[in-house]
Design a protein around this nucleic acid. Structure first.
Lengths: 142, 142
DNA sequence: GTCCTCCGTTTACAAATGTAATCTACAATT
DNA sequence: AATTGTAGATTACATTTGTAAACGGAGGAC
């Protein structure tokens, strides 16, 4: 079960296709991606191969042809990426970034409801200030 | 004005230091990072050099020594990263991911207030459903 | 003034990534 | 059966990234 996933941007595009199709053959993936990106079929094959190596895709041989499936759920992968990103940015500014992000992405009414609930719950225990975590331990001029 | 910033994770760590210090000499950056990470001084120097090339840091020579400053605001860079990430993930699932993200990161009371306001505003025009944007144009088996 | 140190620059080199051609073996066609 | 189209595997190669040593000059220590 791929846990750390150092998955690259190109590979991510392949994953999105397979996540959506649930299972797919290489030609399905290739057809879709050759259109979307200007990749050659070969390129997509390479990416598929690397994803299999990385344990992100499983290949099940059916006759001569492989059927590819994702070894990790899309939601999980997305969550990990999002969390990793925010953990690597200044904690103090996360809130503002999130606020602007909310304005920039599409959200459904029910998404908004969920978010509001989550916020309300969090409000109880929220601190007045979040400390910046940008500088390692010791102080500047130490 | 660095606009696209293909900035790597290691480089990001250097940026965080300089963003926080506002201006810094190489030795300040090196001292902090050699502790935090197990990098050699040389490694940090390389990263600084690359960031200058990429236009993310400016180097102002004061005598023999450089003073480094960031060429792009931290908030801007953070916002770009966050937006880019979410734009590259399944639009339909962004809401859920965000909801869980909110639970995982630290937020101050005022952050929460801002988020709630942003959500309330957005609620007006929110659709009932957000469409998945994972598969390129043409349909699966076309 | 000489030597050492520190800083910036240059060079190094392996691994990962982006991008792809080629080769090989089965499958479908004729 | 011979041919041809494909799918998967192997190989290729430039660029980027991670990680660092080496070099060369300016300033400070003595």
């Amino acid at each position: 079960m791929a846990n750390d996933l150092p998955i690259t941007t190109s590979e991510w595009e392949v994953m999105r296709i397979v996540w959506t199709l649930e299972k797919a053959t290489s030609s399905e993936i290739i057809n879709l991606l050759v259109k979307k990106r200007t990749w050659k079929a070969s390129t997509v094959k390479t990416l598929i191969g690397r994803l299999v190596q990385k344990g992100m895709l499983t290949a099940t041989k059916e006759g001569h042809t492989n059927t590819y499936q994702c070894a990790i759920a899309e939601r999980t992968a997305m969550q990990e990426e999002a969390t990793r990103l925010f953990k690597n940015m200044c904690a103090m500014k996360n809130g503002e970034v999130l606020a602007e992000l909310i304005q920039e992405i599409q959200l459904s009414k029910s998404d908004i409801q969920k978010l509001q609930d989550a916020l309300t719950a969090k409000e109880q225990t929220a601190p007045d200030q979040v400390a910046c975590n940008c500088i390692p331990k010791e102080e500047t001029t130490e």
